[in-house]
Write a protein that binds this DNA or RNA. Sequence first.
DNA 1: GTTAGGG
DNA 2: CCCTAAC
Length: 109
Amino acid sequence: MRPKSHSLEIHKRRIRRPFSVGEVESLVQAVEQLGTGRWRDVKLQAFENAKHRTYVDLKDKWKTLVHTAQIAPHQRRGDPVPQELLDRVIAANNYWAAHQAKEQAELEA
DNA sequence: GTTAGGG
DNA sequence: CCCTAAC
């Protein structure tokens, strides 16, 4: 059999790029202003010159941040994210969750 | 092309 | 990070 030449695959899987505390800061700041349903705008406003961060990546990072903020500090990994930022993540997440729920209610009304 | 969630 | 149904 032909040993599958993986070198021919062009599925350019991107390398891991742990978000720095600074990036988290920018992400939180942007979401506080734009919300959780406008990752395209978040990318443009806070990561316009970060070619390796797509709006999908930012959406995923927010998902992990919300989770990180809810688990015990000792089960978190990587460089510790300031509790102050995690608090803002929870606050912004709750705020926009209610905001979206409100829009849903108005939409079906 | 972007949103939204599971994989 | 990836994959992709829905829109």
